[in-house]
Amino acid sequence: MINFQYSRASDVADAILLLTAHPGAKLIAGGTNLIDLMKENVEVPSRLIDVSRLPLRKIEETPDGGLRIGALVPNSDLAYHPLIEQRYPLLASAILAGASAQLRNMASVGGNLMQRTRCAYFYDTATPCNKRAPGSGCSAIDGLNRNHAILGTSVSCIATNPSDMSVALAALGALVHIAGPSGERTMALTDFHRLPGDTPHVDTNLEVGEIITAIELPPRGFGRNYSYLKIRDRLSYAFALVSVAAALELDGNAIREARVALGGVAHKPWRSLEAETALRGHAATLEHFSRAADLLLQGARAHAHNGFKIELARRAIVRTLTQAASATPQSQAHKKIA
């Protein structure tokens, strides 16, 4: 690990000041991803600004009936919080599909949004990677790309976002609360992560000096018809090849509201408003689910080893919507797929 300076932020304003004053600095909360990257010399921050003691650990109801989740709430606490379990079980399920119990205990909600890709070339400083070393080239495009993106890729980068939690947040229409040098702002979770384009080293739309203070969940929780299905190379503790968060509101068999988000397929959680519109007002049938899958995967592009993801994603979308419609969500404890 490369030596670094350490500061402990006394409050959010102090964290912003420190971030602004030290351009090479990084915030650290749970450190479950950042420390790994520092051990590999992929991240070499000049300074770590410890925000882990800031008072951002509350889960509160908002006046409109939603929930505001402090950025430092540990992933485990969030997944097992009664209000999350009752009203937003899709989010609880997605969190429990990720990492291990130990990591979920350490990882914060804000840090989860900031975790970086697991692309092997990004991790290996001996190989070119535009995300790690801008302009050095993308080793994955013509290399080992079985785990890589099929949607929203660019000629500079085909990395995926590894988060499970973000996929559920995207489906739920969550907002990200941000504080920065010029005040506070909110951003839709779906706008928070970027596509790689020609600046793949920039993962998110956070500006310099900004920090995540909270995630806000809208009132609509899809507590009955939801499912999070994660397909991976072993039955636990592996990143998604494809994951699907599906949430429905049904009138009988008619779909009143639909949300579908994909993980493991793009540089950000992938949603298609077109696909969701195509479901809305229609019967919850395989035919409509397939149609939605086609729309979600419109423009999907395979590289040498990841072509299977397109068909896998199609099938996983249909299955997850089926699970959601029948109110038989995928269990994260029992690995048989419902």
């Binding site: 697991r118 092997a120 070339y121 991790y123 290996d124 001996a126 190989t127 290399g143 080992l144 190379d233 072993r234 039955l235 636990s236 503790y237 592996a238 690995k335």
Partner: peptide, 17 residues
């Protein structure tokens, strides 16, 4: 070069398997 030289990406069975 070996690209999965760690036990996150080099898979061995987890308890669930």
């Amino acid at each position: 070069r070996i690209m999965n030289a760690n036990i996150a990406e080099y898979h061995i069975p987890a308890n669930a398997d």
